[in-house]
Design a binder for these strands. Structure first.
Lengths: 340, 340
DNA sequence: TGCCATAGCTAGACCGGTTTAGTAAGCCAG
DNA sequence: CTGGCTTACTAAACCGGTCTAGCTATGGCA
């Protein structure tokens, strides 16, 4: 015989299918004695629920979806995503909720996946990353009516829960630190310009520069890849009056930039200070180890998972949840600028 | 009205549910005219199949499972997994097959997940990574009767398809290269000792050392983490007669080792040559860029996905599939050893 | 003309659960 | 003793598909 069904258990225990269902789901309708007997039989027969059958009745799919829209080959590098995934899994696994993961090429494809998974009842909710400026995904999620947690914010509107950290404050802490040790020409290798956090960081740098009266503070948008990070660094360092400090929006770019500096014979931190906006093992294992903004991405993943599980239980209106502002970890890639 | 069902379409098109099912699945039983009409109605009503309902009838779940057994916090670092994932996704997405991903703490938990997903009809097949020496997961998979693709081999027995590259030949190419440029004392920072590929690499190094008459060739097992990579490197470099070349089983460890060398004032490649068994952006962006074995992990992922999809269609007996042997990419982290 | 094969379709069982309506028995109060 | 209420349970509908058995109309062929 194949996998046992509740009908098999019912027959074995001498009760009806309904009674078995009640017993297995811990709901009233059977006596304690009968419940114990049914549970014992189910245990003996090694019964497991058939998730599809459950989902058919309109119940949970016990899965949540995460769709990442980035060119497939570039995902590999970002420790951020792997860390986030790990944190998500840690919580989801504990609740026996599976994670449906998909990597697509662009936002249009991403939205298509949301529609498909929702209509196919594959998932109970979604996790959104890389919040964009006027994000076209939000209205779609509202329309689909499934709960979602959005990484990024703060923001109004929509029924999703927003989880965010204060990028502006974080950028200010970097610039304040650099200015305090004497830097007056700071460059910023930013990420994709249509991401909300990219824009917030760029604006924060500009504001801080004005307030502190810096000589120069330029933001250069990139696609987050090591290639563009390296190329932009090369351009910056080739200028006659080059910046004395560069802030990188990701650790991958920072490490690439560090490599370019070494290659061009620019000493770090002697002639150039480097700060990474993202901390990870990557930032720690290179030499010199990078001064970086430390946030606990694993914990972020855990928080996202918790919030989503909560939202699945009681669909409330969208809320905001602020994570601690990342704190600057000073390592050996920063020092006062060269004299003169 | 909620989501339209085939019953709604049937009513609208004036046919029976069965006819709709035939039409939508492209099987005989309806005339071309009727089929076209049904398809048009389905299109108009924006119908999507309910995956649970399909799965209930014994059909496909249209999902495959990947379970990774490593401590959650350490996954984040390995570019290998992210690259593999990207390759998998590229192919799976194209076939509208979802990927169920789960990270667990150990092999026992991994096996438990296999059992659960199989009995819950959540997935149609599995992908196994980190093949172990006498792998306890293989008999379980045979018992569950679901197709699987195993990364690692070659191997007999089991009904799984094995996909592997020739680790032995790869290690030999590294040692031959190092010996050819004059190295006589080579160390090897290996991975977890119960992995098959770890053992094969250790054995290959020993054999090559004997054949080439090297002065020393030692393999040190680690847990793949940057911490152990750094610690073991420190120990090796502190010895009175230290190795002139170190081969690292992963790029993360190699980069960590590079950092330790820099910190201890050991010049790379002047005094120490470094080779990474895994190539990735990581190996390229550090300075000096690392000589490494290049294999296309993304392509590996694509191949795995293709093979698994094929196995889903026609469950054949287990087979072997050999990937191209990784080729050594010489960069700037290797040179002849210091004189004397 | 009569018979059979076949195309084209319908009705309904079925998958494995959940859930609702209904029923029998037990208990208590009046 | 009876009516009403609760408890413990059963029977059956239901979710949205797939699939098989069977029915009807048509065409081909002897």
């Amino acid at each position: 015989m194949g996998r046992p069904t509740i009908a098999d258990i019912a027959r074995q225990a001498g009760v009806s299918k309904g009674a078995v269902s009640f017993a297995l789901n811990g709901r009233p309708g059977v006596s304690e004695a009968t419940r114990a007997r049914i549970l014992r039989v189910a245990e003996e027969m090694n019964w497991r629920p058939h998730s599809a059958a459950r989902a058919l009745g309109g119940a949970r799919a016990d899965a949540v979806g995460l769709v990442i829209a980035r060119p497939a080959r570039t995902i590999g590098v970002e420790p951020f995503f792997s860390q986030l995934l790990s944190g998500l899994q840690a919580v989801l696994s504990a609740s026996s909720v599976a994670l449906h993961l998909m990597v697509v090429e662009d936002t249009a494809a991403e939205i298509e996946v949301y529609r498909r998974w929702a209509s196919e009842h594959r998932v109970d909710g979604f996790i959104l990353v890389d919040l964009q400026v006027r994000d076209p995904r939000l209205p779609v999620l509202d329309e689909l009516g499934l709960p979602a947690v959005v990484l990024g914010g703060p923001g109004k509107g929509g029924n999703q829960l927003r989880i965010w950290a204060d990028d502006r404050e974080a950028m200010l802490s970097i610039v304040d630190y650099l200015a305090a040790i004497g830097h007056r020409r700071i460059a910023h290798l930013a990420g994709l310009p249509h991401f909300q956090h990219t824009q917030r960081r760029i604006r924060a740098l500009r504001d801080a520069s004005r307030r502190l009266g810096l000589e120069e503070a330029v933001s250069v948008p990139t696609d987050f890849s090591d290639a563009e990070g390296a190329a932009a660094t090369r351009t910056l360092l080739s200028r006659p009056r080059r910046p004395t400090a560069i802030v990188y929006d990701s650790d991958v770019m920072a490490v690439a930039g560090l490599g370019v500096a070494g290659e061009m014979g620019v000493a770090v931190p002697g002639e150039l200070s480097i700060v990474s906006f993202d901390d990870s093992v990557l930032a720690r294992i290179v030499h010199p180890p990078l001064t970086a903004l430390s946030r606990d991405t694993f914990a972020l993943g855990e928080q996202v998972a918790h919030s989503l599980l909560e939202a699945l239980d009681e669909a409330g209106p969208g809320r905001d949840l602020q994570m601690p502002t990342p704190r600057l970890t000073v390592r050996e890639s920063t020092s006062p600028p060269p004299a003169g």
